[in-house]
Simulated assay, not measured.
Amino acid sequence: MLKSALEHAVREEEIPRNAARNVHTGTPRPRRFEPVTADEAGQFLAATRGHRSHALFELALHTGLRKGELLGLRWEDLDLDAGTAVIRRTLQRRRAHHAAHQDAGLRAPHRPSHPLRPLAEAPPRAAAAWQRSGHVFTTVQGGAIEPTNLTRAFTRLLRKAGLRRIRFHDLRHSTATLLPEQGVELVVIKELLGHAHIGVTATVYAHVRLRLQRDAIDTLSTALGSPAITTGNGDNDEPLACAIVR
């Protein structure tokens, strides 16, 4: 990142040379993802039912939106009749006790009609202390939700659901993992998640699941007229794979 920034400064003639150009960087270690399965996602949503942020979590799993994009959603970004949302900004924590909006670039309209239905049916706010911030997801007083507070609530709800601890961002990875299982093409996932290049989608989410790979092998085995491969044919027999190799 530093090398890229300095290279840009060289092109703009702000500095004479890029001091980081000859620095050797090692191969980056692949990031670990902890996506939830479809059953775990359903278990989590069942645990959040009745929570004031239930629609937020449901929208996160249906669309793969980032935490800041969800918290930055405003009512003018939604078309409840059409069931669509346009991503224009993100809410990020700049420093302690301060959150600020940042332009996210216009993203194509999402169509999360089912998660938006509870928002359309939500009763009007009548509290005297209610502040009209324009945000879709707010605190009890109507202000913007602090990202760290949402993370704490998310962790508590994971414990309530009896699930392992994951990051909020893993909900986005879960969406990208579950979509291929439903037969959605990579290019559609790229547009939904807002990646600039399809290579990012292919690299980050290439680990769809070992189960999908096994299913693919079993499907091919069925097509070729042979039974699905098993791990062995008895306690004292050699593994089937060894016999095939010889």
Rank of each mutant, 00 (worst) to 15 (best):
M1Q: 14
M1H: 14
L2R: 10
S4F: 07
A5F: 14
L6R: 01
E7C: 09
V10Q: 02
V10T: 01
E13V: 04
R17H: 03
A20P: 09
R21K: 04
V23E: 02
H24I: 15
T25A: 12
T27L: 15
P35Y: 00
D39F: 10
E40M: 04
G42N: 12
G42A: 06
A46D: 15
A46L: 12
A47M: 06
T48N: 09
H51N: 09
L56N: 00
F57D: 05
L59P: 03
A60S: 06
L61A: 02
L61D: 01
H62G: 12
L65G: 05
E69K: 04
L70I: 03
G72S: 07
G72N: 05
W75I: 03
E76G: 06
D77T: 09
L80Q: 04
D81Q: 10
D81T: 11
A82C: 14
A82V: 14
T84C: 08
V86A: 14
R88V: 13
R88F: 12
L91T: 10
L91F: 11
R93D: 11
H98D: 13
D103M: 10
A104P: 02
G105S: 09
L106V: 07
P109I: 12
H110L: 15
H110T: 09
S113Y: 11
P115G: 08
R117D: 09
R117A: 13
P118M: 06
P118F: 08
A120F: 07
E121I: 07
A122K: 07
A126G: 11
A127M: 09
Q131G: 07
R132M: 08
R132N: 09
S133Y: 08
G134D: 11
H135V: 08
H135S: 09
V136N: 05
T138V: 09
V140T: 10
G142M: 07
G143T: 11
G143L: 08
I145K: 10
T148K: 12
N149L: 12
N149Y: 13
N149M: 11
L150M: 13
T151E: 14
T151S: 14
R152P: 06
A153F: 10
F154T: 07
R156C: 08
R156H: 13
R156A: 13
L157H: 06
L158M: 13
A161M: 12
G162V: 08
G162T: 04
L163G: 06
I166H: 06
I166T: 06
R172K: 02
T177V: 02
T177P: 02
E181K: 07
E181H: 11
L193T: 01
G194F: 03
G194I: 01
H197V: 00
I198H: 00
I198T: 02
I198Y: 00
G199Y: 01
G199T: 02
G199R: 00
V200D: 00
V200M: 01
T201F: 00
T201S: 00
V204F: 00
Y205G: 00
Y205F: 00
V208N: 04
R209P: 10
L212C: 10
Q213C: 07
R214F: 13
D215H: 15
D215G: 15
A216M: 08
A216F: 07
D218C: 15
D218A: 15
L220D: 10
T222G: 10
A223R: 04
A228Y: 11
I229E: 01
I229Y: 02
T230S: 15
T231K: 07
G232N: 15
N236D: 15
P239M: 04
P239Q: 05
A241M: 05
A241K: 01
I244G: 00
R246L: 09
